[in-house]
Simulated assay, not measured.
Amino acid sequence: MRSNNKTKRPQGGTFNRNQTPPKQFKVTEGGELLLFLLDKLSPQGRNSIKSLLAHGQVSVDDRVEKLYNHPLKPGQIVTIRKDRTTVAPVLVGLKILFEDDDLIVINKDTGLLSIATEKETELTAYRQLTAHVRLHDPKNRIFVLHRLDRDTSGVMIFAKSERVQQKMQDGWKDIVKERMYVALVEGMVKKTQGTISSWLKETSTLKMYSSFTPNDGQHAVTHYKVIQANRNYSLLEVHLETGRKNQIRVHMQDLGHPIASDKKYGSKTKPFSRLGLHARVLAFEHPTSGQVMRFETDIPKQFLSQFREEPK
């Protein structure tokens, strides 16, 4: 299912003569958005300004921003509109493949965080989708079902309620019917298909590694098949039987063919600035309808470009 998008999102707002012209302020020093607005809109009260944010009436550099603690940088332009209009923020680094009352399925680009840690305040898939669902109701939320590493691209699902999140996480192994990645790895993988099984553990520096002692860590099973290969790289189709942190990256290192550009897990080459890993296919049973849904994305062109015929 490459394109089954029920959502029609407006790409921007229009301004007519009957609307009140927006107010604009230039940021001169760093700080949080709410404090900036309290200063610029004084004597307007805190609750009134929070309402402006909740209703999508505040933009930073033309992007609707609803987070009170959004960090501002000098030179940015903050715009406040008097009229409540439904303006969809432009989505950066992701594309919505499907959306209904229960789920949002996206194709995430490399470089975009799935969700931020406590120390990170940058743009994430989670934050953008939260703003997206709050266009219809400021109380709407989204819930994380699984994650992709920042430098891994591909298909992800988010739940739109805690009920759906709980149901899918509790039955994840049965609900998810297919989870297939493509990996560009170093060297020619001679065995055309195989399975890697180990127990994954984590060091104090948060790096995962394999133990081959039964039950010494979290059991991880990865199946692979060679799609294409030359003397420098192999393109693999990788199916996950389990979904552990950094599982494919560790198992490819165990295989002796680390993922391209993955210095953390043994790569010696860097054919491009991203990680050579893409979540290509995700199929699952819909939590409400029971229908099996399958989403497939293209193999990144950067991966395929490593197999162009060399000049004779």
Rank of each mutant, 00 (worst) to 15 (best):
K139A: 15
K139T: 14
N140M: 09
R141W: 06
V144C: 04
V144S: 08
H146Y: 11
H146Q: 10
D151Q: 15
D151Y: 06
S153W: 12
M156E: 04
I157P: 03
K160A: 11
K160Y: 07
R163V: 14
V164A: 14
V164T: 15
K167G: 03
K167C: 00
Q169P: 01
Q169C: 10
D170T: 13
D170N: 12
D170V: 04
I175F: 03
K177C: 07
E178I: 03
M180N: 09
Y181S: 11
A183E: 12
L184W: 12
L184N: 08
L184R: 03
V185W: 11
V185D: 10
E186M: 02
G187N: 05
G187R: 08
V189M: 04
K191G: 01
T192E: 14
T192F: 08
T192C: 07
T192R: 11
I196D: 00
S197Y: 02
S197N: 13
S197G: 00
S198R: 05
S198F: 09
L200K: 01
K201T: 09
K201W: 01
K201M: 10
K201H: 05
E202I: 13
E202A: 01
T203E: 10
T203G: 12
T203A: 06
T203Y: 00
T205M: 05
L206F: 11
L206P: 03
L206C: 03
K207M: 10
M208P: 01
M208N: 01
Y209L: 10
S210M: 09
S210E: 08
F212W: 13
T213N: 05
P214L: 05
N215S: 12
N215E: 15
N215R: 13
N215F: 13
Q218D: 14
H219C: 02
H219W: 07
T222R: 02
T222N: 00
Y224L: 02
K225W: 09
V226R: 04
V226K: 02
Q228C: 11
Q228D: 15
Q228L: 15
A229V: 14
N230Q: 04
R231M: 09
R231A: 14
N232Q: 10
N232V: 02
S234T: 15
L236K: 00
L236Y: 13
E237P: 01
V238G: 06
H239F: 12
H239D: 15
L240K: 00
E241Y: 01
T242N: 06
T242C: 06
T242D: 07
G243S: 09
G243R: 04
G243Q: 08
R244I: 06
N246Y: 06
N246L: 00
I248W: 02
R249N: 08
R249F: 10
V250E: 08
H251K: 07
H251D: 12
M252F: 09
M252Q: 06
L255K: 04
H257E: 07
H257W: 10
P258N: 05
I259F: 08
A260N: 01
S261A: 14
D262R: 04
K263D: 08
K264W: 00
Y265S: 01
Y265Q: 00
G266M: 05
K268T: 14
T269A: 03
K270N: 09
P271E: 12
S273A: 11
S273Y: 03
R274Y: 15
L275R: 00
R280D: 05
L282R: 07
L282P: 05
L282K: 02
F284M: 00
F284E: 02
